[in-house]
Design a protein around this nucleic acid. Structure first.
Length: 690
DNA sequence: AGATTATAGC
C-alpha cells in the first residue's frame, strides 16, 4: 500500500483526481484502504483531501452504499466546508432519499455557512424528485433570499421543478424573466407542456427556440408519444432527419418506444371497447350505423390520433369506432420500428441496456418475437427490466416454456424479479396452460421474495385456473382473495366460463360484473350467449332486451392486413372491398383445398338464432378469413402473412388457419385481442390453448 | 482550489 499511497495522495491534489482515483479504487475495499491510510497519516483532517474522497463517493455511477460511506467520512470531519456540503447535497439529490439533501441544507446553515449557486440546483432537484411542492416553494424563497435567482443554472432548475409539478404558470413566470435563457431552459419548458398534455404549446416553443440539441428532440418526440400523438412523433423524427441531424441513443429510444406505445394504445382501446365480444358470439345483435369495408391510406398517414376526420374512402364509422383508427396505426408500426432499428445500426449507435430493452419490447409487441430474442441475446448487459420485457413478450406469443427458461436463467444470474416480472411470467403460464408451475410461482412471490401480490397477479391466477377449466377453483380463489376483486378479475372468470361453457358460474360472475360496470356492453352479450347455449332462451332474451334498453351497441369485428404499403380492413361478411369477388373466389378455393386436407367447418361456436346453413355462411365470412384469402392471393408461398384482429380468434377460424398454413406452406401471424398466434406447418404456437 | 441545470427501457 505504501508504494502507491504517495501517488494517491498526489492525485488527491491533482486537477482531475476523480478519474485517477477511479483507476486506483474501483471498489469499495480499495476506497476503505485509502480512507484508512488517510486516517493513519492524518491527511483526513485536511478538508480538501477529505472533500476529494467525498466527491469521489458521490459519483452517481456508484450505488448508494458509497453514499453512506461519504456520509461516514463527513461525520468524522470537524469543520466541513461548503464544497463538502454541496457534494453531499448533490449525492443525495440523485439518491433514493433526496430529503437528506434538505437535511444537509439546514445543517450547513446552522454551521454558519452560506449556500451558493452550486448548492441550489441540487436542492431544487431534491424537491423535484420528492415531488414536494411545499418544499419547492420554500427553496425558491431561499434562493431569492440569498440573491441567487439570477444564476442560469439556478433558474433552469427552478423552471424544471415547476414544470415537473405541472405548474406551468410558475415555470413560465421564471422563464420569461430570464435574461440569458438557454437550451436547457427551453427544453424544460417543452417537457413541462408535454407533461401537462399541452403538446401544442410545447411544439410552439420547439419551433421558436433559437437552438435545439438532441435532448430537445428526444423530449419533443417522446412528448408526442406520451400524448398519443404518434403521427406527430413520426413526422418530427422525419423532420430531424431532413434537417441532417444525427440522432443519438436517447432519441432512438424515444422513437422506438413511441412505436411500441402506439401498439399498446391499440390493445388498450381494443380491450376497453371490445371486451368479451366475439365475432360469432356477438352476431345476431343488430349493429347500428354503417360499417365501411376497407380504406386506403398511404404510409405517411398510417398513424394518426383518435377522433379525427380521416382521408378519403372513410365513412362516419371511423369516428364512431376509434379503435379502428389506431389499429391501422399499429400495422404500420412494425415497419416503422424496423426502420428505426435500421437507423440505429446504420449509424453505429450503441445498443445499450435501455435502447436494447426498448427494441426487445417493441419487437415483441409488434409480433416479431424472434427479433426480440435476437436483440436480447446480443445485449452486452441485462437487468431485471430487460429480462422482464423479453419474458412478457414470450408470454404474449404463448411461448410459456421459453419464458420459464428465461425466468429461471434470470434468477440464476442473481437478479431479483420485480412485481412486473411476476405478472409477465404468470401470464406466460396462463397462456401456456402451465397451471402447476404458475401456482408455484404465485406462491413464491410472497414466500421467497417477500412481495405482496398485487391485483394483476391475482388476475393472472384466475386466468390460469380458468383457462385450464378449473372453474370452481377459480371462483373459490376469487372469493377468498385478501384484496377486494375488481372488474378485470371477475371478467377473467367470466371469460373462462365462456371458453368452458359453464353457465352456472358465469351467471354469478356476470351478475357481479353488471353491478360493478353497468354500462359495459360486453357482459350482457356474454351472459346472453351463455344463457342461449344452455337453452335458457327466455333469460337470454331478457339480457338482449336489457342491452337495447341501455343502448348498447356492438363494435364490429374486423381484421387488418398490410399489402403493398396499404392497410386493408375487412369486416365480417365483407361485400365492399374492390376485389371482393376475387377474394371470395380465393376463399372458396382455399376452402376446397383445406377440406381435402381434412378440414370440416365447425359450427359449435356459432349463433343461436339462425339455421345451420346460415351458420356456416357467417362463419366462413369471419373477417380474418377474408383477410387471409386476400393475403394468400397477394403473396407467394413462404412469405409470412401478418393479420391483426380486434376480437379473439374463434375456434373455427383457428382450425382453418392451421390447415391453411400447411396446405399453402405459409406462415400466418395473427394478433388477436389477447395475444399472437403463429400458424406454421399446420400447428399454432398457442398449442390450441388460448 | 473544486462542481451544477433539461433526456430514454416498466
Amino acid at each position: 500500500m505504501s508504494g502507491i499511497s504517495s501517488p494517491i495522495l498526489t492525485t488527491l491534489r491533482l486537477k482531475n483526481p476523480k478519474l485517477l482515483l477511479l483507476e486506483f479504487c474501483s471498489c469499495l475495499s480499495h476506497l476503505k484502504i485509502i480512507h484508512g491510510h488517510m486516517i493513519r497519516t492524518h491527511s483526513i483532517t485536511d478538508v480538501f483531501s477529505a472533500s476529494r474522497l467525498i466527491a469521489f463517493c458521490i459519483n452517481p455511477t456508484f450505488q448508494s452504499n458509497l453514499l453512506t460511506y461519504a456520509f461516514s467520512i463527513f461525520s468524522q470531519l470537524e469543520n466541513p466546508n461548503l464544497f463538502i456540503y454541496n457534494a453531499l447535497i448533490q449525492g443525495f439529490s440523485a439518491s433514493e432519499n433526496p430529503s437528506q439533501s434538505l437535511h444537509f441544507y439546514t445543517q450547513l446553515q446552522s454551521q454558519g455557512l452560506f449556500p451558493d449557486n452550486i448548492t441550489f440546483p441540487f436542492l431544487v432537484k431534491a424537491c423535484t424528485k420528492l415531488v414536494s411542492v411545499y418544499m419547492g416553494i420554500q427553496v425558491h424563497a431561499q434562493i431569492i433570499k440569498h440573491g441567487l435567482l439570477n444564476d442560469v443554472y439556478v433558474q433552469n432548475s427552478v423552471v424544471h421543478m415547476y414544470a415537473t409539478f405541472g405548474d406551468m404558470k410558475a415555470a413560465r413566470n421564471i422563464f420569461r424573466r430570464m435574461h440569458r435563457s438557454n437550451v436547457v431552459s427551453w427544453t424544460s419548458m417543452i417537457a413541462g407542456y408535454s407533461k401537462c398534455g399541452d403538446v401544442k404549446s410545447a411544439r410552439k416553443l420547439f419551433d421558436k427556440m433559437p437552438e435545439k440539441n438532441l435532448v430537445t428532440w428526444s423530449i419533443m418526440i417522446s412528448g408526442y408519444a406520451k400524448n398519443s400523438r404518434f403521427d406527430k412523433a413520426v413526422e418530427l423524427f422525419q423532420v430531424l432527419q431532413s434537417e441532417g441531424v444525427r440522432a443519438n441513443e436517447t432519441v432512438m429510444v424515444s422513437v422506438i418506444s413511441m412505436v411500441k406505445m402506439s401498439m399498446k394504445a391499440v390493445m388498450k382501446e381494443m380491450n376497453q371497447c371490445n371486451q368479451d365480444w366475439d365475432d360469432g358470439n356477438a352476431a345476431g345483435i343488430t349493429v347500428t350505423g354503417a360499417v365501411d369495408s376497407c380504406s386506403w391510406r398511404g404510409r405517411g398517414r398510417a398513424v394518426r390520433g383518435r377522433g379525427r376526420a380521416v382521408g378519403r374512402g372513410d365513412t362516419d364509422s371511423w369516428s364512431t369506432y376509434p379503435p379502428i383508427i389506431s389499429s391501422c396505426a399499429h400495422l404500420g408500426a412494425l415497419e416503422l420500428g424496423e426502420k428505426a432499428h435500421e437507423y440505429v445500426e446504420r449509424n453505429n449507435l450503441d445498443v445499450n441496456l435501455i435502447l436494447g430493452t426498448a427494441l426487445v419490447d417493441m419487437y415483441a409487441r409488434c409480433g416479431c418475437i424472434e427479433k426480440a430474442i435476437r436483440v436480447f441475446e446480443g445485449l452486452p448487459e441485462r437487468d431485471t427490466l430487460s429480462w422482464t420485457s423479453l419474458i412478457a413478450g414470450l408470454a404474449l406469443h404463448g411461448y410459456a416454456e421459453m419464458a420459464l427458461k428465461y425466468f429461471e436463467e434470470m434468477v440464476n444470474t442473481g437478479l431479483t424479479p420485480r412485481d412486473i416480472t411476476f405478472t409477465a411470467i404468470l401470464s406466460a403460464c396462463s397462456h401456456g396452460g402451465l397451471v402447476e408451475k404458475g401456482l408455484e410461482i404465485f406462491e413464491s412471490i410472497k414466500i421467497d421474495y417477500g412481495i405482496q401480490p398485487r391485483l394483476e397477479h391475482y388476475g393472472c391466477v384466475v386466468d390460469l385456473l380458468g383457462r385450464a377449466g378449473k372453474l370452481a377453483e377459480a371462483e373459490k380463489f376469487v372469493l377468498n382473495m385478501p384484496i377486494e376483486p375488481n372488474a378485470p378479475i371477475w371478467g377473467a372468470l367470466l371469460g373462462a366460463c365462456r371458453i368452458h361453457k359453464n353457465a352456472e358460474i358465469a351467471e354469478r360472475a356476470g351478475k357481479v360484473l353488471i353491478q360493478l360496470l353497468p354500462e359495459h356492453s360486453g357482459y350482457y352479450v356474454l351472459l346472453s350467449n351463455i344463457y342461449a347455449r344452455t337453452n335458457k332462451w327466455e333469460t337470454a332474451e331478457n339480457m338482449r332486451n336489457m342491452m337495447k334498453l341501455k343502448g348498447v351497441k356492438k363494435p364490429p369485428g374486423y381484421s387488418l392486413i398490410v399489402m403493398e404499403g396499404k392497410v386493408h380492413r375487412f369486416t365480417m361478411g365483407d361485400k365492399l372491398h374492390p376485389e371482393i369477388e376475387k377474394i371470395e373466389r380465393m376463399w372458396e378455393e382455399i376452402l376446397r383445398k383445406i377440406r381435402l386436407a381434412g378440414y370440416s367447418g365447425n359450427t359449435a361456436d356459432a349463433l343461436f338464432d339462425i339455421d345451420e346453413e346460415e351458420k356456416e355462411n357467417a362463419l366462413y365470412r369471419h373477417s380474418e378469413k377474408l383477410a387471409i384469402a386476400f393475403g394468400i392471393m397477394k403473396t407467394k408461398a413462404g412469405t409470412p402473412i401478418r393479420i391483426v384482429k380486434n376480437l379473439r380468434v374463434c375456434e373455427d377460424c383457428h382450425t382453418a388457419t392451421k390447415f391453411i398454413s400447411k396446405v399453402f406452406q405459409q406462415e400466418l401471424i395473427v394478433r388477436d385481442r389477447n395475444r399472437f398466434h403463429h400458424f406454421k406447418e399446420g400447428g399454432c404456437s398457442c398449442m390450441d390453448y388460448w
